[in-house]
Design a protein around this nucleic acid. Structure first.
Lengths: 198, 198
DNA sequence: CGTTGAGTTCAACAGCTGATGAGTTTCGCC
DNA sequence: GGCGAAACTCATCAGCTGTTGAACTCAACG
C-alpha cells in the first residue's frame, strides 16, 4: 500500500511562516480583528493558501497556539522546590514565559479570550486542566481548597499580564522583572499557602 | 433671537434606549464586535437614527461610558477612613461597583480596551487621572511611590474583574463578595502601605 | 391654516470579512 | 518523459460593517 508519488518537497517553511504571522497578528489584534488576508500578506502568501493548510480560521488559531505553549515542561521546575518561596519562583517563571516567543501566543490567547466566546473557553480549560491540575499533583494542597487558591492566583497573574502586555499601564509595563517578583511574589505565596476565608 | 419653532416633543426616551442597548452590546461583545445595526435592533430603531443622535460609533461609545461611571462620588468614602483597613474597603467597593448598572459600562470598557487601541488609552487615562490622582490627594502616600503602588493595585483589581466578569473562571466568578474581600483585601493593603522593592 | 424643524426611516455606498472551487505551476517518482 | 500529487494562485461568492444623504412623519408654533 501507501502509493505515495507526486510532489513531496521540503515544504520550505511557508507553513511555519503562516503560523508565525498568525501568532503575531492574533497577539496584536485578537482573534476577531485579525484577518486571514493580513496574515497571508505578512507571510507573503495568497489568502487561499491559508485555508488550504489549515481549513478554517478557528483551526489556524488552534494550530498557532498549540505549538509554543507547554506548561508540562516549565511547571515541574517551579514546583520541585517545595512550598518555600514558591510564590516568587512562580512569578519569576511567569514573567519569563511572557517575554519568550511563547509570550506572543499568550497575549494572543488573552486578547482573544476577551472578545470571543470559544477562545475564552479555551483559556479557562488551559488554566484548569493544564496548570491547576499539575499543581495539585505536585504540591500537597487540600484538593477542596485548590480551585479557590488557584483562581485567586489566576486573578493576580492574569491581571499582571493584562497590565504589562495588553493595556500597558506604566510603570508596571516596563518595570524590572525582579522588582515585580519581589512585590507580587508574596501575594501568590499567601494565596497558595496562607489561610483561607471560610 | 432664538427662533425655535417646529416639532419639540419630549424625546420620548429613544435616546436613552439607544444608550442602554449600546452599553449592553459593548459589554457583551466589546467595541469592535458590537455593531450599530445590532444596537439599533435591540433598541427598536433604525441604524441611521443612531448616527443622527451620536454622529459616529466612537462618540456613541463615549456617550455610553460617560453617564454611569463616576469615581468622584464613591472614592472619597473609601479614602475617608484613613489607611487602616483601606485594602478591604477598596476591594468591597470595587466589587460593588461591578455588580451595579455601572458594571456593564466597566465590562464594556475592559472588553474594548483589549482589542481596540483608543479605548485602551481611554482605560489607562481613566485609571491614572480619575482614580490614582484622587488617591494621591486624599491619602498621604509618597508621590514618587504612588505610580508603582497604584499600578500594582491595578494588576490585582483588573485581574479580579477579568476573572470574575469576563473570563468567568470558577469559583471566583460566583464567589461570595465578602470571601473575596477577605482574601484579596490584604493584598491591596500591602501594595498601598507595605514596603516597596528598590 | 401653513411653515418649520426635530424624529425617524429607506436605500444605497464602498470596504472589508471568511470561505470556495476551479485552475496553474512545480516538483518527485516510476 | 510523463504521470500524479502537492504547493500555490485567481476570481468570486455572500454577508457583514460604518456611514451618508435624501425623503417622510408629525407635533408645535405663528
Amino acid at each position: 500500500m501507501a502509493r505515495r508519488t507526486g510532489r513531496r518537497p521540503g515544504n520550505q517553511g511557508t507553513r511555519e511562516a503562516i503560523l508565525d504571522a498568525a501568532r503575531a497578528a492574533f497577539a496584536e489584534r485578537g482573534f476577531d480583528a485579525a484577518s486571514i488576508r493580513a496574515i497571508a500578506g505578512t507571510a507573503g502568501v495568497d489568502p487561499a493558501l491559508v485555508h488550504h493548510y489549515f481549513g478554517s480560521k478557528d483551526q489556524l488559531f488552534l494550530a498557532a497556539m498549540n505549538s509554543p505553549v507547554d506548561p508540562g515542561e516549565v511547571l515541574p521546575k517551579v514546583l520541585a522546590g517545595g512550598a518555600d518561596g514558591i510564590g516568587e519562583r512562580l512569578v519569576r517563571t511567569f514573567l519569563g514565559v511572557w517575554d519568550s516567543p511563547a509570550g506572543s501566543a499568550g497575549v494572543a490567547l488573552l486578547r482573544s479570550a476577551v472578545s470571543n466566546d470559544w477562545t475564552a473557553r479555551l483559556l479557562r480549560e488551559f488554566i484548569t486542566t493544564q496548570v491547576l491540575r499539575r499543581v495539585l499533583d505536585q504540591l500537597d494542597v487540600d484538593p477542596a481548597e485548590l480551585p479557590l487558591r488557584g483562581s485567586l492566583i489566576a486573578t493576580q497573574l492574569i491581571g499582571l499580564a493584562m497590565m504589562r502586555h495588553v493595556v500597558r499601564l506604566e510603570p508596571v509595563a516596563s518595570a524590572d522583572p525582579e522588582a515585580l517578583v519581589a512585590a507580587i511574589g508574596p501575594t501568590v505565596q499567601r494565596y497558595l499557602t496562607g489561610p483561607l476565608p471560610t
